[in-house]
């Protein structure tokens, strides 16, 4: 290994200069949520498990007809998850709630992409194939996707599904929030438009939060006093209110911190303007110059690699 000291210091000078101009402090993490997004409020006390939303979703998004589309009974025997053929599913839960005759009362819960305010899938995606739109929708662009499935690893709601049996052009499949429909004035997502019991309310997220809180306040005996999705992982566009604890209907307890915050903070404080790698290069270079001084002849003539 030979170092030409002259080359070396010229390069180091440049490296040193770029270190000097780095910003003095690491950037504080800031939310990238759109200012006034749409959302949906799901009131679990209203859902009767008719599964019309599943049907409408399939139709709007060009998916195959839901499994046993008219079944409102045995279909609920197994807990289903959204997959590559269904962006939303309804599950039935017996949470211990009973009616006046001590008969167990079911709670039905709709599952779909929550369209997080600061979506961790968007942060994770290696190519930016997932984006948070101004409408509030988390949109997937298949033309950028390479199929690494890191979005699926990241999602705290375990929503993105994959076309595992397509060998060459598989896609990530998840609820689109009917982005094309809600962009139009008065447009509703397929599921919200069809819901016969007004379980799903579509609107501006701020408005929905006010509606939710009003319902909680006016019916304190019915509802759990919590809007699920107001603060979870930094807030979600889809929010739930319920009369049974949320974790009993598979809505997981989650931290309030936006999920991308930690990794983005670490990445940006170490790598913005590549200041740390450049500094490390400089330090190692200084060591190299020092430790190899006067060694030229002692070293074997083979270069590098060796």
């Amino acid at each position: 290994m030979q170092i030409t000291r002259r080359h070396f210091f010229r390069f180091m000078g440049a490296a040193g200069a770029s270190v000097a101009v780095r910003p003095a402090s690491a950037h504080a993490w800031q939310t990238k949520a759109p200012p006034d997004p749409f959302g949906c409020l799901v009131d679990l006390t209203r859902c009767v498990g008719c599964r019309k939303c599943e049907e409408a979703c399939a139709e709007v998004n060009g998916l195959p007809e839901p499994e046993r589309v008219n079944c409102q009974c045995t279909i609920f025997e197994k807990n289903r998850r959204p997959d590559e053929t269904a962006f939303t599913v309804i599950n039935r839960y017996y949470t211990g709630k009973v009616d006046a005759f001590d008969k167990p009362v079911p709670t039905y819960a709709k599952v779909q992409c929550m369209h997080c305010q600061d979506p961790v899938c968007v942060s994770a995606c290696i190519v930016g194939a997932l984006t948070k739109e101004d409408t509030g929708a988390v949109r997937y662009d298949v033309t950028k996707c390479i199929g690494c499935r890191y979005c699926m690893v990241a999602c705290p709601f375990e929503i993105p599904a994959y076309e595992y049996f397509d060998p060459v052009t598989p896609r990530v499949m998840k609820c689109t929030f009917c982005q094309e429909r809600i962009k139009e004035t008065g447009g509703l997502p397929g599921c919200a438009a069809i819901c016969p019991t007004e379980t799903i309310t579509f609107g501006r997220r701020e408005t929905l939060l006010a509606v939710a809180k009003k319902r909680l306040k006016e019916n304190p005996g019915i509802y759990i006093q919590h809007v699920y999705g107001e603060k979870e992982v930094g807030g979600t566009a889809w929010m739930y209110i319920s009369s049974v604890p949320f974790e009993t209907v598979n809505l997981p307890e989650l931290p309030d911190a936006p999920a991308p915050k930690l990794s983005e903070t670490i990445q940006h404080s170490l790598f913005s303007y590549l200041w740390f790698p450049v500094l490390l290069f400089g330090v190692l270079g200084a060591f190299m110059a020092r430790c190899n001084k006067g060694d030229h002849k002692a070293t074997s003539p083979d270069k590098g690699g060796a």
Binding site: V122, S123, A124, C125, I126, V127, G128, A129, K144, C145, I146, G147, C148, Y150, P260, S263, E264, Q267, H268
Partner: peptide, 15 residues
């Protein structure tokens, strides 16, 4: 599509 990250940068992504 493995070449795509070279042209579609997501600087927030650890990956």
């Amino acid at each position: 599509a493995i070449w795509k990250p070279m042209f579609n940068w997501n600087l927030n992504s650890v990956l």
